[in-house]
Design a protein around this nucleic acid. Structure first.
Length: 888
DNA sequence: ATCGTCACG
DNA sequence: ACGTACGTGACGATC
C-alpha cells in the first residue's frame, strides 16, 4: 500500500533551529536547522518507508489571510538571519534526497497541505503529516495521521482521530473551534480574551462548536458570559483564520509525489559540503563516488611508501625544505604509537609524497632521515609541532628546524574552530580530498590501520594539504597582524612546553598511596554513617539515587532541578544542611571521594613506574582565550582552596635529592591588565601605589576609609572585581554573593560610578566586537564573536560578556606565555640547572638545586614582571620548599 | 556519548 | 521577560 509523507517545511525547520545549538561548518555557514531536518528525513525514510514524499513551504509575503485580517501573524518575531540563510540549503538538500517540494505564492504551507490531504482523503490514500504545529491536527482523518514533534525534533507524537479524541475529547474539525475560542498569540489570532485551553475545551465538550457556544452564551455564568458575548465576533473571525484553506488551485496528481529513494552520490556530496561527518559515516556511503566536480577539484598525488629498497629515492630528494607529517596514534602523545613520518617536497611540482613507516625510520636505512629531522638547518613545516616533538622524543628522535605549524596558525586565526584537523582545515581553505582520520582509521573499538597503500595515500594527502596551506596561512597571519604572535611567541613556546613535559614532575607515589589509605578509612566511616542516617544503603555517587533519598524519602525541599531530575550540587546541599545531619556528611563524603578518585587514584595511574614522574600534556590550541590547558593528568587543577585537598600538593617533589620546588605567581594579573587596557585612572593609581586591590575597591565602592573596611566588605568587593573580569551581570553577582539582583545591580552601579574608565572600556569593547566581529588581546590574539549580533537575548548577552572577558584573560595568557619563553631562554643563557616544570595560568613552578635558590628567587619574579611592559607594574610573588605544598 | 558534579585560575 | 557569572579537565553514573 502506498504511503505519502508530507512535511510542513517551515515548521520543521523552525523546530530544528531552536532545538539544536547553533552549529556552523568550517566556512561559517550555519547548519543546525539543516542538520535537524536531515536527521528527521533519514528517520522517516527508514522507519516509515514512504512510497510518496513531499515537503511544503510557505511562499510569498502576503497571503490571503493578511488581506482579510491585517494583524495576522503580527505578533510573530522575525525569522532570525541564522535561520533564513539555511532555507536555500534545505531546498538543495531536498533535491539530493529526490524529494518533491511545493510552494505557491500567496499561500502558506498549511493550505497546500490542507489541499493535498483533502485529495488523499478523496482517493483513500494513506498520509503521514509531519509538523511542529498542533493546528495541523484539524487535518487528521481515517487516512491522514498527524505527527507532531515534541521535545525538539527527535521524537514525534502520532495523532489519528481516536488519539485526538482521547487527548482532547474533540474531533479534528473541533480543533479549529478550539483555536477560535482560545486564539493563538504566536499567530496573533485573538480568540476570546481570558479563555485558555482549559475553558475552551470545557465549552466545546458541552456545546460542540464556536457557533453553538455563542448561541448558548446565556447559559454561561457571570464574567465568562460577558466575555463571550463581547468577543463573539472575534471568536468567529478567529475560527475563520484558524481554518486551513483546502482549495488551493494546484496539481494534486498522486504520481507527482512518487518517492524512489535518494541519490547516494548527490547526498554524500551534499553531506560533505555541509560537513555532516557523523552522518557520512553512519550512512556508510562507502563507495559512493565523488561527483565529477569534486573529483576535478582534487589534485593528483603519487603516494610512495618507503622501504629499505627505495629509501635512497627519498634521501636523494631531501632538500633544505619540506612539509612533513608525523603520524602518531592516541590522544596522549607521551605514549602515542608511532605510525611513521611523511615527506612532501613542494619545489619540483611532481606531487609525490613519501611515507616512511616507523620501522623503516628507526632502522639503519632510516638514519639519514633521522639526521635530516634533527638538523636545524633543514626547514620543515608541520601540523602540530608540539605533539610531534613529544612523539618523536619518546622514540629518541630529536626534531629541529621547524619554521611553521599549520595547526598553531589555524588556531590563532580562529581559536574557536572546533575542527582543527588537517581534513577540516583543508576543506576550510578550499583543498578537497583529505579524508577525516575517523573515516580512514575508524574510531573507538573499531580503530585499525588500513592497508598500506590506503594509509600511504591518506598520509600523503595530509602532507600535501599542509604544503599548500602554509603560504596561505602565512599571509593570513600577516593580514590579521598575528605574525609576531605566531613566530615570536606561540611557535617557540611549543618547544618550551615539550621540554617541560618531557622533563615531567616527580610524584611521591608512596606518599600518595598512604593518603589514599587514609581517605579510604574516612570514606568507609562516613559511608556507614550516611547509610544509617538515611536508613538505607544506596550509591552516594549517583545524583539520581541521592536525589531520591533526599527529596522523596527524607522529604527535603528541592531548590533547583537539572534537566534530568533534582540537583544535588554543593550549593543545594549547603542550604539543606540545617535540615538533616546526613546532608553535611554527604558534602564531606563528596569532598573526600573527589580527592580519592581524581587526585589519588587518577594521579597514581599517570605516574610512570620507571621514573616516578608524571608527564602532563599542555594543549596549546584548545582554549578560546589563548590559555593553555593540561591533560593526562591535568596539573592545573590540583586542590589548594581546602586544606584536606591541599595536602595532595605534598606529593609533588623535586626529582633530585637536595633540590627544591619553587613557585612564583602573578599578583592580580587580570585586574592589572584591565587597568592597562581600560586606562582607568583609579584602577591604575591603585596598582601604582601597590595597594590591596579588593580593599581599595571596597573603600571606593562603600565610600569609606581603609580602616573601616571589614572582612565582609572586602569579600563583596572581591566578588565585584571577579565579576568585572568575567563580564559582569547583576544576576551573576547576586548568585555569587547570595544577595538580591537589585542589590547586585546597585553594587555594580557604584563600582562604575568610581571606575568610570572601566565602564567606558566595557561599553567600547562590546561596540568594537559588534563593529569588527572580533576582539583582540594586547598581542593581537583574536577571538571572533559572531553571536554578538544574535537576536536571542541570552546568546547575545553571552557574547557580550565574552567580549569583555577575552581581552583580559587572553592578555594575561599572552603575558605568562612571554614569561615562559623568556624564562627558558634565561635558564639556558645563564647556564642554570634549574628547570621549569609547570604552568598554572598565573603561576610557574620550577625545581631548583640549592645553590641556585637565591638566583632563582630573584630571577623568576624579575623575568615574569618584565615579560611585557604595561602602564601599571606587574608583580610576581615567589616561594619555595621541599614540595609544591610548601612553595606557597 | 552525555550528564552532573567538582577541582583549578 | 529573558536567566549565566569567564576559561578549562576528570570522574562516576547512566543511557
Amino acid at each position: 500500500m502506498d504511503k505519502l509523507i508530507i512535511i510542513d517545511g517551515n515548521s520543521i525547520a523552525n523546530r530544528a533551529f531552536y532545538a539544536l545549538p547553533l552549529l556552523s561548518n568550517s566556512s561559517g555557514l550555519h547548519t543546525n536547522a539543516v542538520y535537524g531536518f536531515t536527521t528527521m528525513l533519514l528517520k522517516l525514510i527508514e522507519e516509515e518507508k514512504p512510497t510518496h514524499f513531499l515537503v511544503a513551504f510557505d511562499a510569498g509575503k502576503i497571503t490571503f489571510r493578511h488581506k482579510e485580517y491585517g494583524d495576522y501573524k503580527g505578533g510573530r518575531a522575525k525569522t532570525p538571519p541564522e535561520l533564513s540563510e539555511q532555507f536555500p540549503l534545505i531546498k538543495e538538500l531536498l533535491k539530493a534526497f529526490n524529494i518533491q517540494q511545493f510552494e505557491l505564492s500567496g499561500y502558506e504551507a498549511d493550505d497546500i497541505i490542507g489541499t493535498l490531504t483533502k485529495a488523499a482523503d478523496a482517493k483513500g490514500e494513506r498520509v503521514l503529516l509531519v509538523s511542529g504545529d498542533k493546528d495541523m491536527l484539524q487535518l487528521a482523518s481515517d487516512n491522514v495521521t498527524v505527527a507532531i514533534t515534541r521535545k525538539g525534533i527527535s521524537e514525534v507524537e502520532l495523532y489519528d482521530p481516536p488519539a485526538i479524541m482521547e487527548k482532547y475529547g474533540l474531533t479534528p474539525q473541533q480543533i479549529i473551534d478550539l483555536k477560535g475560542l482560545m486564539g493563538d498569540t504566536s499567530d496573533n489570532i485573538p480568540g476570546i480574551p481570558g479563555v485558555g485551553e482549559k475553558t475552551a475545551l470545557k465549552m466545546l465538550h458541552e456545546f460542540g462548536t464556536v457557533e453553538a457556544v455563542l448561541a448558548n452564551a446565556d447559559s454561561l455564568k457571570g464574567k465568562m458570559k460577558e466575555k463571550v458575548e463581547e468577543h463573539a465576533k472575534s471568536a468567529l473571525m478567529s475560527k475563520d483564520l484558524a481554518t486551513i484553506f483546502r482549495e488551493v488551485p494546484m496539481e494534486t496528481e498522486w504520481s507527482t509525489f512518487r518517492y524512489d529513494g535518494f541519490d547516494g552520490t548527490a547526498l554524500s556530496s551534499m553531506f560533505r559540503k555541509l560537513e555532516f561527518k557523523s552522518l557520512l559515516e553512519k550512512m556508510d556511503f562507502g563507495s559512493a563516488p565523488l561527483t565529477e566536480e569534486e573529483q576535478a577539484a582534487i589534485e593528483s598525488l603519487e603516494a610512495v611508501t618507503v622501504n629499505a629498497g627505495n629509501v635512497q629515492q627519498l634521501i636523494d630528494r631531501l632538500d633544505n625544505h619540506a612539509a612533513i607529517h608525523v603520524e602518531a596514534i592516541g590522544d596522549n602523545p607521551h605514549h602515542a604509537e608511532m605510525v611513521g613520518v611523511v615527506w612532501f617536497m613542494d619545489e619540483d611540482g611532481t606531487n609525490t609524497s613519501y611515507y616512511v613507516p616507523m620501522a623503516v625510520l628507526a632502522s639503519d636505512a632510516g638514519q639519514p632521515l633521522r639526521a635530516w629531522l634533527s638538523d636545524a638547518s633543514k626547514k620543515k613545516q608541520l601540523f602540530d609541532v608540539h605533539r610531534a616533538l613529544l612523539a618523536l622524543a619518546w622514540q629518541d628522535i630529536p626534531l629541529a628546524g621547524v619554521d611553521f605549524d599549520v595547526l598553531l596558525a589555524a588556531y590563532l586565526l580562529d581559536p574557536t574552530d572546533s575542527n582543527l584537523t588537517l581534513s577540516g582545515l583543508s576543506a576550510k581553505y578550499g583543498l578537497p580530498g583529505v579524508k577525516a582520520d575517523e573515516e580512514v582509521f575508524g574510531k573507538g573499538a573499531k580503530f585499525r590501520l588500513p592497508e598500506e597503500a590506503a594509509l600511504s595515500e591518506h598520509l600523503g594527502r595530509k602532507a600535501m594539504a599542509m604544503a599548500r596551506m602554509v603560504p596561505v596561512l602565512r599571509v593570513e597571519l600577516e593580514k590579521s597582524e598575528m605574525h609576531r604572535l605566531f613566530y615570536e611567541l606561540e611557535l617557540p613556546l611549543a618547544s618550551v612546553l615539550a621540554e617541560m613535559e618531557l622533563r615531567g614532575i616527580s610524584v611521591d607515589a608512596e606518599g600518595l598511596k598512604a593518603l589514599g589509605v587514609e581517605l579510604a578509612v574516612q570514606l568507609d566511616t562516613i559511608m556507614a554513617s550516611i547509610y544509617k542516617l538515611a536508613g538505607v544503603e544506596f550509591n552516594i555517587n549517583s545524583p539520581k539515587q541521592l536525589g531520591d533519598i533526599l527529596f522523596e524519602k527524607l522529604g527535603l525541599p528541592a531548590y533547583k532541578k537539572t534537566k534530568t531530575g533534582y540537583s544535588t550540587d554543593a550549593e543545594v546541599l549547603e542550604r539543606l544542611a540545617p535540615y538533616n545531619e546526613v546532608v553535611g556528611q554527604i558534602l564531606n563524603y563528596r569532598q573526600l571521594a573527589k580527592l580519592q578518585s581524581t587526585y589519588v587514584e587518577g594521579l597514581l595511574k599517570e605516574v610512570r613506574s620507571e621514573t616516578g614522574k608524571v608527564h602532563t600534556y599542555y594543549r596549546q590550541t584548545i582554549a578560546a582565550t589563548g590559555r593553555l590547558s593540561s591533560q593526562f593528568p591535568n596539573l592545573q587543577n590540583i586542590p589548594i582552596r581546602l586544606e584536606e585537598g591541599r595536602k595532595i600538593r605534598k606529593v609533588f617533589v623535586p626529582s633530585e635529592p637536595g633540590w627544591y620546588i619553587l613557585a612564583a605567581d602573578y599578583s592580580q594579573i587580570e585586574l592589572r591588565v584591565l587597568a592597562h587596557i581600560s586606562q582607568d585612572e583609579k584602577l591604575k593609581e591603585a596598582f601604582l601605589q601597590n595597594m590591596d586591590i579588593h580593599t581599595k575597591t571596597a573603600m571606593d565602592v562603600f565610600g569609606v576609609e581603609a580602616s573601616a573596611v571589614d572582612s565582609n566588605m572586602r569579600r563583596q568587593a572581591k566578588a565585584v572585581n571577579f565579576g568585572i573580569v568575567y563580564g559582569i551581570s547583576d544576576y551573576g553577582l547576586s548568585q555569587n554573593l547570595d544577595i538580591t539582583r537589585r542589590e547586585a545591580a546597585q553594587f555594580i552601579e557604584q563600582y562604575f560610578a568610581v571606575f568610570q574608565g572601566v565602564r567606558k572600556y566595557m561599553d567600547d569593547i562590546v561596540k568594537d566586537a559588534r563593529a569588527n566581529g572580533y576582539v583582540t588581546t594586547l598581542l593581537q590574539r583574536r577571538r571572533y564573536l559572531p553571536e554578538i549580533t544574535a537576536s536571542n537575548f541570552n546568546i547575545r548577552s553571552f557574547a557580550e560578556r565574552t567580549a569583555m572577558n577575552t581581552p583580559i584573560q587572553g592578555t594575561a595568557a599572552d603575558i605568562i606565555k612571554l614569561a615562559m619563553v623568556q624564562m627558558a631562554e634565561r635558564l639556558k643563557q645563564e647556564g642554570l640547572r634549574s628547570r621549569m616544570l609547570l604552568q598554572v595560568h598565573d603561576e610557574l613552578v620550577f625545581e631548583v638545586p640549592e645553590e641556585e635558590l637565591e638566583t632563582m628567587k630573584r630571577l623568576v619574579p624579575e623575568v615574569m614582571a618584565a615579560a611585557l611592559e604595561l602602564d601599571v607594574p606587574l608583580r610576581a610573588d615567589v616561594d619555595y620548599g621541599q614540595t609544591w605544598y610548601d612553595a606557597k
